[in-house]
Structures are given as structure tokens and as C-alpha cells.
């Protein structure tokens, strides 16, 4: 059986993390759940522990990238076959996780992105966010020579090889786009699968319009520099055992 870890980076998600975890347990009963508490000041840790999840409690806020990398480090250290990233705010329905796993098994790629835009799902982004999503989708599609529609999606599944890469190479803030160019440059295979996403169940997004501008500038610069960087090929010892076919 596939050794599966679901990683949920969480910052002040005490209000909604309990039902999110409960639903994941219902949909993926064999998965281990790891909540990476990114310096929350509410009861996120208590709620996650009560829901039966493992909790890595970061002593201060590192940002989504630092939190996710903690999860990938844990996954790498404990030999997980697949790590799925899920938002703790309920935007990523637990019943969609299986779609990522099925696509990974079918195509044998290293990273599957849950995309809101492969098919019309009715998702509506704000103006600034929508501009950013389209901009990075086109930029990454050009740099990776494949069509990518939702490069900012944080709903993803990584296999063992991608976990090993991401555990050592992950940007601290706004890491989703940068991680794709990093994986592509290192020779990992990426694909998208259409998924449905929901509005967040509670709280507000940390990305304000002003931050969106910073986000676009910072990430675009990092992506372009990343595209010029030396590629680091996948670790040879990881590659053979990484694909679900090999597992089967």
C-alpha cells in the first residue's frame, strides 16, 4: 500500500482545521496527517492534536514555504511514497485528493497539481489574483514547454523523488511557482489534473492587493533566475522506486 502523508500548513486555522482533518481522515483513512503549525497564536495546535493529526509546531512564523518544507523534510525522513499538500482552510475538498493520486499512478509523473482551470470549475479569483494566476501560467508554460494553467495552486501531490528535491529546495514565501521551475529544471515531470476548489471556510487570505504586486515581482524575478540556474538532476537512488508503477 502507498505510504501517504497529507501535509497541511496552518496559520491561525483553529476555526476550520478540525472539520478539514475529519474529512481527510474519512476520505483517506490510511494516510498520515501532518499539520505544520506556522507560529499560530490561536488554538490550531490543540484542534489538530484533538483531530488525531501529527503536529509540527514551528516556534515562529516561517511563511507557507518554510512550513511546507518542514512537511517535506518529515516525509523524506520517514520514507513516504507520496506527500499531498492540502490547505488547512478547507479550500481543497478531501474527496479531490484521490484525483491527484490517480493521476500520479496513471501518468507516473513526479508532481501532480490540482488545477482550477484545466476545466471550467466556476472558480472566480479577485482581479489582482486573476492577473497573477494568468501571468504565471503563461510564464511557466513558456519556460517548461508544457501547458500549465494553475501554477499558484497549493493543492499538489509529490512522489518520493519530488519530495526529496523539495525537502532541500523550497522558497520560503510564495513558493508554489518557484518550486515548479525548480522541479522542471531538475528534470522532474509535472502534470495537472482538474479539481474543484471551495471558498475558504473561515478567516481571510494573507495576500492583499499590495502584496499581490510584491508577489508577482518577487516570484517573476525568482522564476527567471531559476530558469537560468544549473539544473540538478533527480537523485539516481530515488528515481527507480518513485513511480507508483514501481510500487505496484
Amino acid at each position: 500500500m502507498l505510504k501517504l502523508l497529507v501535509i497541511l500548513p496552518a496559520y491561525n486555522e483553529g476555526q476550520c482545521i478540525r472539520p478539514v482533518l475529519a474529512e481527510i481522515v474519512r476520505q483517506q483513512p490510511h494516510a498520515d496527517l501532518l499539520v505544520v503549525n506556522d507560529g499560530s497564536i490561536d488554538d490550531t495546535v490543540t484542534a489538530a492534536l484533538q483531530a488525531g493529526a501529527l503536529v509540527a509546531d514551528l516556534p515562529h512564523n516561517l511563511g507557507i514555504g518554510g512550513a511546507m518544507q518542514t512537511g517535506f523534510r518529515y516525509a523524506k525522513a520517514h520514507g513516504y511514497d507520496v506527500a499531498v499538500q492540502v490547505d488547512a482552510d478547507g479550500q481543497h475538498p478531501a474527496d479531490q485528493i484521490q484525483l491527484l493520486l490517480n493521476e500520479m499512478e496513471r501518468s507516473g509523473v513526479d508532481l501532480v497539481i490540482g488545477s482550477r482551470f484545466v476545466e471550467a470549475t466556476g472558480y472566480r479569483a479577485s482581479l489582482t489574483r486573476g492577473v497573477g494566476i494568468r501571468f504565471f501560467a503563461r510564464l511557466l508554460s513558456a519556460l517548461c514547454h508544457q501547458r500549465l494553467t494553475d501554477t499558484t495552486s497549493g493543492f499538489r501531490a509529490a512522489n518520493r523523488a519530488a519530495i526529496a528535491h523539495l525537502a532541500d529546495n523550497y522558497a520560503c514565501d510564495y513558493p508554489e511557482v518557484e518550486s515548479l521551475i525548480s522541479l522542471h529544471r531538475a528534470g522532474y515531470r509535472i502534470c495537472e489534473v482538474p479539481v474543484r476548489m471551495l471558498p475558504r471556510q473561515a478567516g481571510t487570505s494573507s495576500i492583499s492587493p499590495l502584496r499581490s504586486v510584491y508577489y508577482m515581482m518577487k516570484v517573476a524575478f525568482a522564476v527567471l533566475v531559476g530558469a537560468l540556474s544549473d539544473a540538478r538532476p533527480p537523485l539516481a537512488e530515488d528515481r527507480p522506486s518513485t513511480t507508483p508503477e514501481a510500487e505496484a
Binding site: A56, P59, H60, Q69, R73, Y74
Partner: peptide, 9 residues
């Protein structure tokens, strides 16, 4: 910070 959190866990 990451190692600290993982080891405490």
C-alpha cells in the same frame, strides 16, 4: 526552526 519543530514532535 524546522528541525526544532520536527524533533519536538
Amino acid at each position: 526552526t524546522q528541525e526544532n519543530a520536527l524533533l519536538r514532535m
